[in-house]
Amino acid sequence: MKHFLPLFRFLFVSLLLLILNACAGNNDEDPLQSDIGMGGGTLGNDTGTLPGGEFIDIDGLPPRDPMGVPVEGAYAPVYFGYDSSSVAPSEMSKVQQIADALSSNARYTLIIQGHTDERGSREYNLALGERRALAVRELLISFGVDGSRIQTLSFGEEQPAVAGFEESAYSMNRRAEFQLMQ
């Protein structure tokens, strides 16, 4: 049975891609080459090392496999300061709630979405949003959650929670959001 797991995974990913392509619908003008397996790391993943540079991996992200279906229920977003990815003490209880939810059910996995306000370049904000999601992930790991259960998904400034060009809107957009999966 164990030997068939990769096959099932392959079939599942293929099916998912087929559905995604079908959903995309009217895209005759931009056919997408169905190069299956890109999510699982068939790309060159042999990270090289450099002379003189010591590479210490902190907890790397798990392979981006399908993570199941969303679990009902909303968790409060964690908010951040401008250009910051430090989790303030006042936000810590929100992270603890997520840690509790993950430890209550071993089948749950988590996607942390990272977001920024609209200031700064879109590309930099993509990395900043990722950094926020990763900071929360590191905290969860320090609370005892297995890092292999946590994916990050940065949207940078592309999906603001609140429209507006004042600090009141910006502060609501600098956030990490949580989605439990099972």
Binding site: L32, D35, N45, L126, L134
Partner: peptide, 10 residues
């Protein structure tokens, strides 16, 4: 369109 990089994270 061909995916050139699709590892976990960004």
């Amino acid at each position: 369109r061909v995916a050139l990089s699709a590892s976990s994270g960004i």
